[in-house]
Nucleic acid binder design. Structure first.
Lengths: 112, 112
DNA sequence: TGCTTATATAATAAATTGCTTATATACGTT
DNA sequence: AACGTATATAAGCAATTTATTATATAAGCA
């Protein structure tokens, strides 16, 4: 298996070592999401969400793509440390439920 | 596979998201180590090392065992999140080299 | 064009982290 | 008992982190 340096691994883990960002990654491995969905799911202010996404983006773990009014985030599956990310996500509960709840509240479609 | 809660996983990752602690875990998966060995390997002060070990111990990731004058640390392989720890460590370079260097310097035996 | 919505960024404040130095504790040896 | 070595703990401090509020930017629509 490809090994990453100690330092880069520690940096990835530091990013994932936050409940919100870890859940974001768990969501993104199943669905692309836009900022307003994260705001709704995590009940956090929009700037707080944007700043977490910024950190993930700066590390190259996520990509952004504008779709009209919205900016959708997705996992960068080409990242050197993506296998590590995948392994980590396997250890957390499935996050898709949060998306389903959002859909049931009719809040998913606000971004489609 | 057993899944840990999002929160407990994030807490583990936060601990591993530090270069020194991550390397410590990488070392401990191969050998028990005492504090003075870590001090030598990481070129850090003894209190700094002790504080990192304290965090790992508080989380239950490592155990300590006194052997005469020395206190040896070892991984707690019974920890609920040990499989996660193992998976993470698989992604970093082998740390045993550091122990070998220590032995070559004759510094390993100071703790035997 | 002007308004609304979605998002980013900047400034700031509070909490946390990781080190340092100083000191305490525990064991082994003389 | 006194001393030296190994380790832990406490206090203090600088750097980092994470949130908040305020503001800027960009797209869609009346």
């Amino acid at each position: 298996m490809e090994k990453d340096s100690l330092e880069s691994t520690a940096n990835i883990l530091k990013l994932l070592g936050d409940k919100t960002r870890l859940a974001m990654m768990g969501l993104l491995i199943k669905n692309d999401c836009c900022v307003c969905e994260f705001v709704e799911i995590f009940k956090m202010t929009q700037p707080a969400i944007s700043q977490h996404l910024r950190k993930l983006k700066d590390a190259g773990l996520v990509k952004e793509q504008r779709r009209g009014q919205w900016i959708f985030y997705s996992l960068n599956r080409d990242h050197r440390s993506f296998p590590l990310v995948q392994d980590v996500i396997r250890h957390i509960p499935d996050q898709e439920e949060k998306i389903i709840q959002l859909e049931q509240q009719g809040l998913r479609i606000t971004c489609n």
